[in-house]
Design a protein around this nucleic acid. Structure first.
Length: 856
RNA sequence: GGGCGAAUAGCUCAGUUGGUUAGAGCAUCCGGUUUACACCCGGAAGGUCGGGGGUUCGAGUCCCUCUUCGCCCA
């Protein structure tokens, strides 16, 4: 006990204490506690294939602040950490890192070693299983780096509760939840127009869309009617061969005579009907448009609502299909089709435009335009729409009733900040299709599904063979379905695996079920689910938050967590979101080693929930200064016997010894701080909790300690009062600061207390501060008079040591009466060598002080 | 075009239910080195609270409108 270092430093605290916490299991979850005693957190699993930037550091700190507060409040905190290693980001990283690509047609090589000198441009094809092994290898390395960073930052997660989104448990949960969705009719497969990324060759869900400006040109093209040409305007003339109708607004008088008739398409000579639909815009272009299968999402709506035929000419590789479709019979049309077959849409467009010019069907020159096109958020070519068979999960996109139910679930959740709820409501109400969950990728969780092959070797999609829940996790690509031998794979009369993997969100949406042990550990599940808190970024409300609500609603008929806390972004000084592609990312390692984890956490805590916060390195210094101040002030308060007669003597913690008015007033004010900080934390407002605590702490150091310094040296009742007030106040303040500055507070705690401060109880006025009440403004009054005395010396440009030879204090009588209770401390701290003169004046605000420094 | 949010000191932000002279930190300038701390302390300067209109005895705060910025969605 009482081992206060001579010169305390911040360096090395992270290494020392994070190791100690791991060793002692400081944050280990005790599952013997009851549901009421447990606070469970649904941590976002960061994408390990990316890199962490300060934005992550900030938002994970926000969660940790709440976790530490709840723990000190006596809750047993269930705080797992996951890694999102599943999905396309990992595939891309593996391709670049090892210089390989997945070719599912290749056989597995047992002792495969990737190229020595990876060349991302010339990727070596490897089997699917080899590819997945490489994925697993790389994510393991990445995950260690991430864990180290989180440990340094001081996240109080229980590292025994670790999960990965590609791990077995995640596979079991994802597959089981999917099978149950199928059983209840919530998951189904459908052959339907699907948004398709031609680069990645995969289907893309609505939530993954990103609308971007894309250059194009309007082409004014003539269709041939009985009474002359009908001009339409299109940005995609290469789709003329896929045209199924011309569409105009029902009230458009120009085209009303044509409704019900047919016109002939240019170049291909296909007869297409002219039909009316209310969503055609009369004042856009010529007011009549061609509907193709499929140029954009509007085409899909028209195709569906007007029951038009499907005339697809674009394949999944984004190229024109090789064989001429049966609806083209015109000789010249077949000739042109032969020319564009197999070409990219870009080339096909050029060829088509040339042909239109030649035939005279192009009116004028194409007019350049910027149009909004849908992109896969990770892709760089506009999405095509192709007809494919995909799995879907109901999410309300096709059911107003389900939408209503999901919006109502949003109401059951407490949102921090509250206005974020409208983002969820908005998203749900704007849904226009169910959730597409199949992806044509490799590193993901496979569908636990096979299909029978008929005598001709054709799959029977209508009667999928589903895996038994007991057999999960299952990899249909390497395991045969029940009742089949693996030799029957791909054989007529045999079976084939569903080749797809589940959307990464189809796993992430189940993080509560994964961590809480759904069906695996019913006791744990009962104690942790529904969870207490989902912390996450506001940018993924439509994806992660929404899909988690969907799964929980479908599976459990309830909400997945009672609170959702949304963190803002850290933006660069120009208020732009940090992103790798913009090159404005700030890497956390350097910041952490330069300023220390406590300083970085302090800065993170200053960003209020939901609010974006610009990154400013200068702010870190302030946090570091606070951490340093905690060390020094604590050292002073706990100083060695010989210096101040203080020590870590437990007797000093006895509130009865506090008798002096100023000490009582300081503690009274501290009681207000405890009340405010606690209320703020209860409302998840860590920023306010820090603000009030920090403000008090600086006043405590700069005013209170300065005022009492002299008296504390004395060996009488006044000295004892000060010493006891010191340690009482320090104990409470360290605990108030512990969530923010876990390292420095733990360090100081270890000088004079047993056990970890992070398992110490949150301050409570009823048990920690039982001293009698004193007007809490006394501290501020005494401080303000002292400040005026110092100011007088500062103005006179004399040393603060200079005695004051004349002091007159003017204030209302009431204020003077209060001030007099602590005047001895003021006089001592201000080096006043005379008795102060008091002037009662009811018209004076606050205090008017006239102080004259003695002539030097 | 729709939804949500933001606009207060050079910068980052507080500012409860309208109520004296709008606050803090950083940066700047001036002064101080008293044995916890120079990774320190004190002081000063710095604002027509985005513009306009309205309600009110009184508006940074409430209402209307406009402008600019951010995020999400069309």
């Amino acid at each position: 006990m009482n081992t206060v270092p001579e010169k305390p430093v911040l360096e090395g605290l992270e290494a020392t204490w994070s190791a100690r916490w791991a060793e002692q299991g400081t944050y280990a979850f005790d599952r013997s506690k009851s549901r009421e005693e447990i606070f469970s957190i649904d941590t976002p699993p960061p994408t390990v294939s990316g890199s962490l930037h300060v934005g992550h550091v900030f938002s994970y700190t926000h969660t940790d602040l709440i976790a530490r507060y709840q723990r000190m409040r006596g809750k047993e905190v269930f705080y797992p950490m996951g890694w999102d290693d599943n999905g396309l980001p990992t595939e891309r990283r593996v391709q670049n890192f090892f210089g390989v690509r997945c070719d599912p047609s290749l056989p597995y090589e047992a002792d495969y070693t990737p190229p020595d000198k990876p060349d991302a441009k010339r990727q070596v094809p490897v089997s699917r299983r080899n590819f997945i092994e490489l994925c697993n290898r790389l994510v393991e390395e990445d995950e260690l780096v991430f864990e180290q960073l989180w440990r340094t930052l001081g996240l109080s997660v229980d590292w025994n509760q670790k999960y990965t989104t590609i791990g077995d448990e995640s596979q079991v949960v994802s597959q089981r939840a999917f099978l149950r969705n199928v059983a209840r009719g919530e998951a189904y497969q459908q052959d339907a127009p699907t948004l398709w990324d031609v680069t990645y060759q995969t289907a893309v869900a609505q939530a993954e869309l990103e609308a971007r400006e894309y250059p194009g040109a309007y082409h004014r093209v003539a269709f041939h009617g009985a009474d002359g040409p009908i001009h339409i305007e299109t940005t995609r003339p290469e789709l003329i061969g896929a045209c199924v109708a011309l569409i105009a607004h029902p009230d458009d008088e120009r085209y009303q005579p044509l409704f019900g008739t047919t016109v002939r398409s240019p170049l291909f000579g296909v007869e297409v009907p002219v039909v009316a639909h209310a969503s055609a815009e009369p004042d856009k272009g010529s007011g009549i448009v061609m509907c193709c299968t499929f140029g954009d999402l509007t085409d899909v709506i028209w195709w569906r609502e007007l029951q038009l035929p499907n005339r697809t000419i674009i394949g999944r590789d984004g190229r024109i299909l090789p064989d001429a479709p049966e609806w083209i019979s015109d000789e010249a049309g077949l000739g042109l089709y032969a020319e564009i077959a197999g070409k990219t849409t870009f080339t096909a467009r050029e060829l088509t435009v040339a042909a239109l010019k030649e035939s005279g069907d192009l009116d004028g020159d194409p007019k350049p335009t910027q149009r909004m096109a849908n992109f896969y958020e990770r892709g760089d070519k506009p999405l095509e729409i192709v007809s494919t068979r995909q799995w879907y999960i109901a999410n309300g996109g096709r059911s107003a009733e389900l939408r209503k139910a999901l919006v109502a679930r949003g109401d059951e959740i407490d949102w921090v900040p509250t206005y974020m709820q409208s983002r969820l409501t908005n998203w749900i109400e704007g849904l226009n299709g169910d959730w597409l969950v199949s992806r044509q990728r490799f590193f993901g969780i496979p569908f636990p599904v096979w299909y029978r092959l008929d005598a001709a070797g054709e799959p029977d999609y209508d009667a999928p063979i589903l895996a038994d829940e007991a057999s999960l996790p299952v990899d249909p690509a390497s395991q045969a379905p029940p009742g089949f031998e693996d030799s029957q794979r791909g054989e007529p009369g045999g079976f084939m695996a569903d080749p797809d993997v589940l959307d990464t969100w189809a796993t992430s949406s189940l993080t509560p079920q994964i961590v809480c042990g759904w069906e695996r550990d019913p006791e744990l599940f009962a104690k942790t689910f529904p969870m207490d808190l989902r912390p996450q970024g506001h940018d993924i409300i439509r994806t992660w938050l929404f899909s988690t609500v969907v799964r929980s609603h479908l599976e459990h008929g309830g909400i997945p967590w009672s609170h959702a806390a949304l963190s803002g972004f850290v933006v660069d000084p120009d208020r732009k979101k940090m992103s790798k592609s913009k090159g404005n990312v700030v890497v956390p390692d350097e910041i952490l080693s330069t300023y220390g984890a406590d300083a970085v956490r302090w800065r993170a805590a200053g960003a209020r929930p939901g609010a974006d916060s610009p990154f400013d390195e200068a702010q870190m210094k302030v946090g570091r200064r606070l951490a340093m101040k905690v060390l020094n002030a604590s050292k002073f308060v706990l100083a060695a016997e010989e210096a101040y007669g203080l020590g870590a003597d437990a007797a000093h913690l006895d509130p009865v010894r506090v008798t002096e008015a100023l000490d009582l007033a300081m503690l009274s004010r501290l009681r207000l701080v405890v009340t405010e900080a606690t209320a703020a934390f209860e409302a998840y407002d860590y920023a306010t909790a820090l603000e009030v605590t920090e403000k008090f702490f600086w006043d405590f150091c700069d005013d209170y300690l300065e005022l009492v310094k002299e008296r504390a040296r004395r060996d009488d009742a006044g000295g004892a009062s000060a010493k006891s007030a010191f340690v009482l106040a320090l104990s409470v303040q360290l605990r108030l600061l512990a969530p923010f500055l876990p390292y420095v507070t733990e360090e100081v705690w270890s000088w004079w207390q047993e056990g970890s401060i992070h398992r110490a109880p949150w301050p409570d006025n009823g048990t920690d501060l039982t001293t009698s009440e004193q007007d809490p403004t006394l501290l501020a009054s005494a401080a303000s008079v002292l400040a005026d005395i110092r100011g007088a010396k500062s103005v006179a440009k004399v040393s603060q040591k200079t005695p004051i030879s004349s002091l007159t204090i003017t204030a209302t009588k009431d204020r003077l009466d209060v001030l007099r209770l602590a005047i001895a401390d003021v006089v001592a701290a201000g080096r006043v060598s005379v008795d102060p003169v008091y002037v009662a004046d009811s018209s004076v605000e606050s205090f008017m002080v006239q102080a004259t420094p003695a002539a030097v």
